[in-house]
Amino acid sequence: MSYPDIVLASSSPRRRELLAQLGVNFTLVSADIDETPQPGETPVAYVQRLAQQKARAGLARLSQPMPVLGADTIVVADNQILGKPANFADFNRTMQLLSGRCHQVMTAIALLNHQRCLTQLVTTDVCFRQLQIHEIDHYWHSGEPQDKAGGYGIQGLAAKFVRRINGSYTGVVGLPLCETEQLLQQWQEQA
């Protein structure tokens, strides 16, 4: 099946690489939005709102109408959103929280234009083994955690911390390929 040409509203190299695996023709726009959670907003509502806002911000930057794909990924433990670490102390607190237990990674995707919007939420359980203090320190100093939701990238050095996952690996990386392909098919069928 051929897919429509789309715009990816993201500056994430991981999302670009994943979307390219589907064989979709796409161009890129950046989508800078305010990512501050709203008072009382649940993690599910938050991640879905950000995916849609990113897609809308991308759509606003286009000179010609095209479908825009926006995505956002968050890490959630104890119903708390764990963002990108502000500093080592914040990162250490996050890793201590994730150590030896399971948490959720939620990725929302939104495909939209001026007439319609399709969305999908994918939640994956990720279980870490018990982490040692020296491992946390070494991982921080690798430089990898600084720009990652929840302070880790499953596709990188933190893979050795993961005992198991239940759900979408590519969703944890940042773009659930199975669900993205289904969204593109649905878009094409409704055209």
Rank of each mutant, 00 (worst) to 15 (best):
L69G: 07
L69Y: 08
G70P: 02
G70Q: 02
G70D: 06
A71G: 14
T73Q: 13
T73E: 07
T73R: 05
I74D: 10
I74K: 14
A77N: 10
N79M: 15
L82A: 05
G83V: 01
G83M: 03
K84P: 06
K84S: 13
K84C: 15
A86T: 08
N87C: 11
F88T: 01
F88I: 05
A89K: 15
D90T: 06
D90G: 12
F91R: 02
F91Q: 06
F91N: 02
N92M: 00
N92S: 12
R93E: 14
T94F: 10
T94R: 13
T94Y: 14
M95E: 12
M95R: 05
Q96E: 10
Q96I: 11
L97N: 01
L97R: 04
L98V: 12
S99K: 02
G100V: 09
R101K: 08
H103P: 05
Q104M: 02
Q104R: 15
V105F: 11
M106Q: 14
M106F: 10
M106S: 05
A108V: 07
A110R: 14
A110H: 09
A110P: 06
A110M: 12
L111K: 04
L112Y: 01
L112E: 10
L112T: 13
N113Y: 01
N113M: 03
N113K: 03
H114W: 06
H114Y: 14
Q115K: 15
Q115S: 14
C117K: 11
C117A: 14
L118I: 01
L118S: 03
L118C: 01
Q120W: 03
L121P: 08
V122I: 11
T124K: 06
T124F: 00
T124Q: 04
T124E: 09
V126N: 08
